[in-house]
Amino acid sequence: MEVYSLSGPSGTGKSTSALEFAHQYGIEGIIDDGLLIVNGEKLAGTSAKFEKNTITAVRRAIFHDEAHQQAVIKALQEVDLKSLLIIGTSDKMTKQIADRLDVAPIDHFHYVTDIRTTKEIQLAKFIRETQGKHVMPIPHAQVEQNFFKRFVQKGREIFFKNKKIGETTIVRPDFHQETIDISKSVYLQVLTHELSKHNGITRFDIAQLTVDLMPSMTIVIFLKAPVTYDVREVVRGLQQQISDSFYLHFGIEPEYINVVVKGIK
């Protein structure tokens, strides 16, 4: 069996990208959070997301329980896969899982930064930290909903070259009870502060600010006279200043920052 590893910090979107990644590389099976997934459906195992706390969730994910370990080993032997993808938070974790499931050594190591953009990772982490949402790369119908009394919903159907290869389910596990609700007024205060302290602006108006997932904004500004500077450079510097400030405070960059130069004062 050819074994692949995909690792990256928690909440960076590994499970969201798992089905597409596996299909792209022609990988038949996936080990993710204690589950064996084949052809986009759960074949064996129990998800770590069913656990009540993070300690037992980690133990479940690395197949610490012998009965769980043996059940997945048996399923792997019966299905006779030619390739397998193991997902974890680090190379150390995926190697440990490979050892526990008797499929070591790992042949190929990949990382979430190889398959997701910086903005996609930022967004995934932001959603995890603020809303507590976790993704399972199996259909909604295969998730035992009594384990998730607080939150279970359908994710999205995954397509590769117009062919459906699976679907995801969004859950909020019991061990992830803390969420953060950021008011729109907080985004507005940070944006106002950054605009107020900029030396090249005499007046501004925030024409539009949306915060559905990633913040997006349109700002109308009046420049300081006399214009003895490169206007484009000033505006781009302002965009970068706002982007850096949002990343510092919220861990996410705005989806777009549109700046309209209305006049000179």
Results as ranks from 00 to 15, higher is better:
K265N: 15
K224P: 07
S243Y: 04
H176P: 12
I180C: 10
D114V: 05
K133T: 01
Y229K: 11
A18G: 05
Q77K: 14
E66I: 10
V231F: 02
M214H: 02
G8H: 04
F109I: 08
T117Y: 01
L238A: 04
T192L: 06
V72S: 04
R236M: 09
T16V: 02
H198W: 07
K224F: 09
A207Y: 10
Q70I: 02
P226E: 02
H23W: 10
V220Y: 11
Q208D: 15
Y4E: 03
K184A: 11
F250Y: 05
R150K: 14
G132R: 00
R128T: 00
T117V: 04
S15R: 07
G88F: 11
E66L: 13
E178P: 10
F246V: 05
A18L: 03
T118N: 12
Q70A: 13
I73K: 10
G166Y: 01
Q208M: 13
L19C: 00
G251I: 10
P226L: 08
R116Y: 04
Q145A: 00
K125A: 14
Y4V: 08
Q77N: 13
L195Y: 06
I87F: 07
A18K: 02
S83L: 03
V135P: 00
D91C: 13
G11I: 01
A225I: 05
V186N: 15
A71P: 09
H140W: 03
T210I: 08
K262L: 11
V3G: 02
A48H: 06
L213C: 08
E253V: 08
Q77L: 12
I86V: 03
V259K: 13
Q70T: 08
I30F: 04
S7G: 12
Q240P: 09
P137S: 02
I73G: 06
T179G: 11
R172H: 00
R156M: 06
D205H: 11
E255N: 10
F148I: 00
E66F: 14
R236H: 15
E2F: 10
Y247Q: 08
E253L: 03
R116L: 03
V235W: 05
V135E: 00
R60D: 05
S90T: 10
I115W: 04
G40K: 03
Q77C: 10
Q69P: 06
T202K: 12
H249N: 15
F109R: 12
G13H: 01
L101S: 04
Q189E: 14
D80N: 15
